[in-house]
Design a protein around this nucleic acid. Structure first.
Lengths: 334, 334
DNA sequence: GGACCTTATGAAATCCGTTACATTTATCTT
DNA sequence: AAGATAAATGTAACGGATTTCATAAGGTCC
């Protein structure tokens, strides 16, 4: 592989000139610039990344920590992240933690080892290993928590108002006459579930005729939705509606209803979360809360880049808008 | 951030000794080792990644090029990749190309710039920018083509036999009496579609009573499956079965059937590909070809690591097994 | 034609580790 | 106890870029 020395030798200039030709072409005279560019082309030269990073201490990389890349919500957010990052000349280092604290901390170490300029944490909160540094000097670290909003820690976030989204769902169901609703939440430790649950509970209790909620925690895969729904709907005094914390759970729930011979929405209404592209393909098409997934990713990157490159003042967390998309899986309570 | 110099000074040894303590502790005497380790701990020292890479020319990173991370097939494969890579002490650089040649080439450049030790290309073939180097010195480059198998280029692959999978599907449909089948393929340029199509065409023609195939190319999202199916099933002389090149297309197709008031499988049978975790949740549960997605990812990484770290001899492409999973979306032709 | 600016280029220090080679110290032979 | 060998540590070159500072060439002005 050719080095900058080779290029300099071939073009008959110093390495400094080669470097300048590449990074600031306008301060090099046209004749030399051409000569250098020819040499670059002839040798098929590309600057060695490690050397550049070592000298400049900028990696132009963003580390993205995600609990499960195969979750369609995260994979779409990451597409947004990748797109914006790439546009800005950054590349994405992917860290799939599988909801594992140890792995989270390993990736946190990577960040502290300066393998990336910035860190984006999707859900699951800021890893233990970083909390201390973050608390001590919040604006030194470029962490953007792309999903849940942690008021305790002074970390910039891009988020939607999960509590409000839940209120929208519950209000919608209440309006349809539902008074008994089951909630399929995520794993216990899921930070963002807190806000969603609180929103649902508050709202459910706020009506003159309140809604009775039954909450279960568990995995976020279809399989878990299937099992939990089977249980919930087989029990006596079954709810008339189920509110799932993601669309995949709703797919599982729907499948369980079919198994039990219950019709959706005639017998049981169903609400999802995320509005992944499968929601509208379901039978019946799923009522769900739309999250601006791509935009969540893009905005997060942009905010992070402002931290990294721009003026550090006046930066604030950004709330994006969700929207309840009413399709055909919700109807009047039987 | 502390450097190796700081540690050396604090421990009263040379930088060489510090380096050795960290990378080969057993060749350092116990007393000095302890002293160094204490200094490391006290200064919270972690070696600078860039300097290490520059010196050793090993990044311990794998670049993964994927056409669309939000595709559930790829996102699961990538989960397998990430898992194995992480286990081996490598991290994953993600390149989402969005089926765009220019972006493919940009990532190829990244690889040539030595930003990663190895490259995994999922589908869509080896990027133009690399074909030349690959042809000239096939074992110098560590590329593993994790999905399609390109016999022209001498690149190691991990793959399933797409032609055979297609034959399984067509044989299955033929056995059920279908003589007129539509195929929803991917975008025209998709390399792996070639094998699948060839397998289907060969097999369809091989029977005494052959199957008539109608092939359409297009996007791989549910939306595209919906539209194409609407068109195909509205035309006169409609097929009795549809074979989709992924499960998401099948979801779209199913949705279109409902729209047209056609029942699956009574009126039209449906087959998918991949066996993503949504397949069994569909109504009816989808007959589909299972690909070992996680394993595809893991095996690819392991093969790549053998190229990078092991003996370069005797390495060969690896064929993994697919399997036709018959569920309820296929039945006897009407 | 000399003083003074620009503009273009080069020399060399620097970033922070690793490692070949040299040197010191400890251990073993006979 | 001297010499040989092994073990532990140090010295310094090196990897490949960027960037500060110095210098040279060309232009302007009076």
């Amino acid at each position: 592989m050719a080095t900058i020395q080779d290029v300099a030798a071939l073009a008959g200039v110093s390495t400094a000139t080669v470097s300048r030709t590449l990074s600031a072409p306008d301060i090099v005279s046209e004749t030399t610039r051409k000569r250098v560019q020819e040499a670059v082309a002839k040798l098929n030269y590309t600057p060695n990344a490690a050397a550049k990073i070592l000298r400049t201490t900028r990696t132009r990389k963003i580390l993205v920590m995600v609990p499960d890349i195969s979750n369609p919500f995260y994979s779409v957010v990451i597409r947004g992240i990748e797109e914006s990052a790439h546009q800005a000349g950054y590349s994405v280092l992917l860290g799939d933690t599988q909801y594992d604290k140890a792995r989270e901390n390993q990736y946190a170490d990577m960040f502290q080892r300066k393998e990336a300029d910035g860190l984006i944490v999707l859900a699951s909160g800021v890893p233990e290993a970083l909390r201390y540094s973050v608390k001590r000097s919040p604006d030194l670290l470029a962490i953007v928590n792309g999903h849940d909003y942690d008021p305790d820690l002074n970390v910039l976030s891009v988020y939607i108002d999960h509590a409000a989204a839940s209120r929208d769902v519950i209000t919608h169901l209440h309006g349809l006459g539902h008074r008994h609703v089951a909630i399929l939440a995520g794993p216990d430790n899921h930070t963002l579930d807190g806000a969603r649950l609180k929103g649902a509970l508050d709202c459910a209790a706020s009506f003159p005729e309140p809604i009775a909620l039954r909450v279960t925690a568990g995995g976020l895969r279809a399989e878990s939705g299937f099992k939990r729904t089977l249980e919930i709907l087989s029990a006596p005094d079954r709810p008339t509606a189920i509110y799932c914390f993601n669309d995949e759970l709703a797919m599982g729930a729907l499948s369980a209803m079919r198994r039990l011979g219950l019709r959706c929405p005639a017998d049981v209404s169903l609400v999802g979360f995320d509005d992944t592209r499968y929601a509208r393909m379901m039978d019946p098409p799923l009522t769900t809360v739309r999250q601006p997934m791509i935009n969540l990713g893009k905005t997060t990157v942009n905010l992070l880049l402002e931290v990294l490159e721009g003026e550090k003042r006046d930066l604030a967390s950004i709330k994006l808008l969700h929207r309840l998309i009413v399709r055909e899986s919700t109807a009047a309570a039987p």
